[in-house]
Design a protein around this nucleic acid. Sequence first.
DNA 1: GACTAATGTTTGATAGTTACAAACATACTG
DNA 2: CAGTATGTTTGTAACTATCAAACATTAGTC
Lengths: 266, 266
Amino acid sequence: MTPDPDGETEPRRIKSVRTGSDIIDVVKRLQGGTLAEISAEIDLTKGTVYTYLQTLVDSGFVTKREGEYRLSFRFIALGEHVRNETGLYVAGHDVIDDLADRTGEYVHLIAEERNRIAVLYESHGDRAIAKDYHLRMRETPQYFHDTAAGKAILAHLPSDRRDAILEAHEFEGQTKNTITDAPTLRETLAEIRERGYALNDEEEIRGMRAVGAPILDSDETVVGAVSVTAPTSRLSDDRFRSTMPKRVIEAANLIEVNLETAQIDR
Amino acid sequence: MTPDPDGETEPRRIKSVRTGSDIIDVVKRLQGGTLAEISAEIDLTKGTVYTYLQTLVDSGFVTKREGEYRLSFRFIALGEHVRNETGLYVAGHDVIDDLADRTGEYVHLIAEERNRIAVLYESHGDRAIAKDYHLRMRETPQYFHDTAAGKAILAHLPSDRRDAILEAHEFEGQTKNTITDAPTLRETLAEIRERGYALNDEEEIRGMRAVGAPILDSDETVVGAVSVTAPTSRLSDDRFRSTMPKRVIEAANLIEVNLETAQIDR
DNA sequence: GACTAATGTTTGATAGTTACAAACATACTG
DNA sequence: CAGTATGTTTGTAACTATCAAACATTAGTC
């Protein structure tokens, strides 16, 4: 191994697995690409990319439909598998559906992984709108600072992990309401801890408000969050700061109870 | 390249990508495994498997929770991505929910990929039971011969593709009702083509019946199927052969209309 | 339908990665 | 605290991945 300039050695990795993963990312982003298009995005010759794509097709990650490479349906099955082995999903699934029915809005079950938030499950009632937004939300990993669920989780993480995240990330401003500086964010998080729920007042996208509550373990470790998202017009101040938080917290508590009685590993 | 014994050369593949895929499969199957457990399943030294796992964690496919490697939440997002770029899902999603509400049973939206059936979406009404079964159904790729949706698709595939599948597979008998020989299966498929829907009379698991109808393209190519599954006790002969087929076909037709008006690529 | 351009596929050679083996470190067990 | 299982690191030999360039196929044009 060649030692780094600063004497540290890089940990050993399998380069071809990384390359394979890169190609999967490109195929995902392109939503259907030809060999030429895909190799244009990757710093390898088309011959090499060709071999990778054949291998990925063989392994069932990619399929070729109508001359274009796409991610295969196998990911749907893999996604369901991950869900069903996740205690939080099993415990929360029905509660989320219920909350969606009763509020009529979009409801999310969120977990944390690799210092990002991940959507475990989404359900919506019949008044829910802005489907395109939620589509994006479901598909791309999100940060903590500009969503209600994210802030609810971040507020309840052990302080060392919270510090690490606050230091590691630049907080991009999605709207003029987004909190972009660490000190203000810290204050908000302290508030959230006190009152038990988090708000998102058009901080992620204009015209949408959200309320989120953390889901805690039997030993007070945060394992996820629930959130309800609705247009500001339907979440007037009173509902936004009183009625809805109550409901969201209630749902979070229900999930906590399910988690504890089930004793399924998260 | 070393030529094969029979003079044919194997197409070139990236061996490490295959190995990575194999390890992902093992991690999936073990539902949380330690390095020792995972390397026991793979014909590589633990040092090598260690490097693979580190790489897979880096790339976001695998996470380590409580000392065990598991598939990461990223697969949920990838699965949703695949769904949402699939025209059939976009066109069929609401119709399936509707049918589940009205029948109260399990409803599946099925597509075909790599000579297997793949569950694109599942919805269930409030009478649906046997959740464990459906879990398995959702997670593992299935064959055509022992499900209603599978037979509906197989019946409408172009004859060359159908022949290829019929020849390639041994038809395992799941129950005493499963059709296991190609000639009988061919007869059944001809019937299905004539009457427009397929039945599964406890052929996959005992006590469960299902009705499936194909979803056809504007040029009569089959792109998928809808099916309703219910316990035999609630699908008496009359419902099984008359009422339910009508509903399932209706749903399939609705999806066909959605597909054509939307003109989203499949 | 012949000609051209673009895209996809195959292959020999070699730079460089992978996989082994074996040592080292750490965590569990009685 | 010894003993054992599990996880991590590393030098090196063997083999793979990658390039480059040729070849094949398909699509586009006049």
